[in-house]
Amino acid sequence: MRRRILLLAPALLAPAAAAAGQAAPRWTPSRPVRAIVPFAPGGATDVVARVLSETVGTILGQPLVIENRPGGAAGLIGSEAVAKAAPDGHTILIHSNAHVIAPALVSRMPFDVLADFASVAHLGRIPQVLVVNPRLPITDMQSLLAWLRANAGRVNFASAGIGSANHLASEVFRAAARAEVQMVHYRGGGPAMQAVIAGEAHMCVDPVASAVGHIRGGTVRAIAVAGETRSAVLPDVPSASEAGLPAWSAAAWLAAFAPARTPPAAIATLNAAFNEAMQRLEPRLTELAVERRPELATPEALTEFVRQDAARSQRVLREAGVQPE
């Protein structure tokens, strides 16, 4: 009898195994995947999206097409386009932590930043760096703080737009330095940086990923990297703590999102493609100061991280006196 049961076991397990296989069908895109970046070209979000796009497209078997859709507080226009797109896996959003800042700035949001999006993949953490126009009489944090006091209310501080990660980091700097500046908002990190280079603005905060080329080229002067530690990409630039302003701590993160109700199989395929691309391109991403966070590799971990960061970021802006309009 025992022998008969053992012989029957594989036959009994086969239907269950087949059912398990059917429960998790593999999804593949049937056409190019559109990745909306809600900022102008040239900023860190756009730079990282374009570095990843070709490899992700190769893994998916369909091109990943980057579409810049700037405008609105915290990239609201591009985000809304994705929130309202068909949840079929063929439209995603590549955004920064500005995604979760929007509710602190806009009183009537056209979507819910948590409920209307599905987490796809964490695309890295990027330290922020403070830069100034090199023609200013500023060489370090102490001379910057003295210059800010001497020119209170007359300093143009460029940001990547209301609610951008750069804006959040700039507000944290303004509070830490107790500086009276005019915050000037542009349509992305690229235009903000160009304003500083041209002398239209005096200073800005930018992710190291997009600022490093300008710093090395001498078109802007780096003063400090936010936080306690230096960036390996900019080893000669002191951290804010080393420079004498330890209260200035900020970093940007990037992630991919899909419209809510996108099938789990599509999310899984996209997640795997981005994670594999991040691994293949790690040397290039490291050059851009993009730090991988393996503990956030799953959509579930990213969802919880985003929820917590939304609460923290919105609190920082409220404490800085920023009110939704």
Rank of each mutant, 00 (worst) to 15 (best):
Q128G: 06
H122C: 03
G89C: 05
M183P: 07
A179H: 08
A23M: 12
R178Q: 15
A175G: 13
L317E: 03
A226N: 09
L168Y: 03
D112S: 14
A9W: 11
S143T: 15
P283N: 10
V196Q: 05
L12Y: 08
T58L: 13
E54K: 14
M203T: 08
N271L: 05
L148S: 13
A268P: 03
V237I: 14
D88R: 02
P63C: 07
G78T: 01
G42N: 04
G42W: 00
T269G: 04
A250I: 10
A255K: 00
N166W: 04
A198T: 02
A16G: 11
L93Y: 06
A179P: 10
D112K: 11
A232G: 15
A20Q: 07
V233S: 07
V132H: 00
E291G: 01
G71H: 03
E171V: 01
V233E: 05
A81W: 01
L114W: 01
E325T: 10
M203S: 08
I138L: 12
A160S: 14
V65M: 09
E67R: 13
D206I: 08
E180Y: 13
A20D: 03
G321I: 01
Q194R: 15
A198E: 06
R312L: 08
G78Q: 02
G213T: 14
E291I: 10
P103T: 00
S30Y: 08
A146I: 11
A250V: 06
V233D: 01
R292G: 09
A266Q: 05
